[in-house]
Simulated scan of single mutants.
Amino acid sequence: MRFAVVGGTGLIGSRVVEKLDAAGHEAVPHSTSTGVDVLTGEGLDRAVAEADVIVDLTNSPTFDDASPAFFQQSMDNLLEAGRKADVGHFVVLSIVGVDQVPELDYYRAKTLQEKVLAAGPLPYSVVRATQFMEFVDSILSWTSDAGTVRLPTTPIQPIAAQDVADAVAAVASGEPLRGIHNVAGPEVFPLDELGRITLAARSDSRTVTTDDTAGMFAAVRGDVLTGPADASLAPTRYADWLAAR
């Protein structure tokens, strides 16, 4: 099978390309660096012309109220290019619980992306993943100063980027789900505890203070960002991922 992996040079995309190629498929990475622009449409027809599957791993450059416009425009362009090329499967990577946190601009934008895909002309699948282990440092930095990191107790179920890529590649290689596949890490942590574990593993002397008003995830209510009952659990544990880093 031939895959057009849009956003194929990034954290997840590069791993998806590698996984699909290793399985004997032909996965072609596309991004602005290869002359493909999902907002203007430049290069899209060429990118998907001979593809059996489009895998969309692009991301908005911002997390603010400009992000819905990015996903609306990029999906309109990708779906139209895929329709003209008679692509048989369109896969998007999204976020577990994304439609249950309307307080966050970016989550509303990703929910819009899913809705545009489902209403579009192509058979589709959505892979929803929990928060990436690779993003924990960024989460800590949002509410950090020289000596303290403030974090809420929001339950988080971190997943390694490689496990996300494996899930995306598996879904993309199969029949269209016309629905959602959830994938999550094997363990749930309160975010403040995850911060303490991370700092301790790195001999970082900063202190984590529990603050349920701190950072983006303070807007999350309950455990909506953890895997639902039907989620597939990935194998990589956070302690093992930290040790390997």
Rank of each mutant, 00 (worst) to 15 (best):
A66V: 10
E114M: 03
R83S: 14
E18L: 05
V220I: 13
E114K: 04
V136Q: 11
Q131I: 12
A4Y: 14
N59V: 09
I197A: 05
A69I: 02
M75W: 07
D145Y: 05
M133Y: 13
D212P: 14
G7P: 13
S94M: 02
Y238E: 01
V126P: 11
A47C: 06
S144W: 00
A47G: 00
L117M: 01
L104T: 15
A218I: 11
S144E: 12
P235M: 03
T213S: 14
V116P: 03
A170G: 03
I54C: 06
Q73L: 04
S14L: 03
A229W: 10
E114C: 00
W142L: 08
A69D: 14
G35V: 03
H181Y: 11
D21V: 05
T62L: 09
V5L: 14
L78Q: 10
D192A: 12
A160D: 08
G195Q: 01
S67E: 01
A129I: 13
R15D: 09
D56V: 06
V183Q: 07
A119M: 09
S138K: 13
A160K: 06
Y106I: 04
L93Q: 13
D240T: 15
K84D: 07
P121E: 00
Q100W: 13
F135Q: 14
V224W: 05
T236M: 08
F135V: 15
A243K: 11
M75D: 12
L104G: 09
P158T: 07
S60T: 00
K110P: 12
N77W: 03
D212W: 01
T148D: 08
S31Q: 07
D212G: 10
G88H: 03
R196M: 13
A169Q: 11
D21N: 15
V48Q: 05
R237K: 15
D52R: 03
L140C: 11
Y107H: 15
Q113G: 00
E42T: 01
V136F: 09
A81T: 06
H30F: 12
N59Y: 05
A229I: 08
S67M: 01
D65S: 13
D211E: 12
A184T: 06
A172V: 03
V28L: 08
T34D: 02
S205W: 04
F135I: 15
Q113D: 13
E50S: 00
T143F: 12
P68A: 07
A119E: 15
A109T: 14
A146M: 04
D45F: 00
S60N: 04
D64A: 02
A49R: 03
L242T: 04
G185H: 08
Y107P: 09
G24R: 12
S205Y: 09
S14M: 02
F3H: 13
Y238H: 05
M1E: 10
T58E: 00
V38P: 02
P235L: 01
L242H: 05
A23C: 14
G8Y: 11
L225Y: 12
D137S: 09
Y106C: 06
A109V: 14
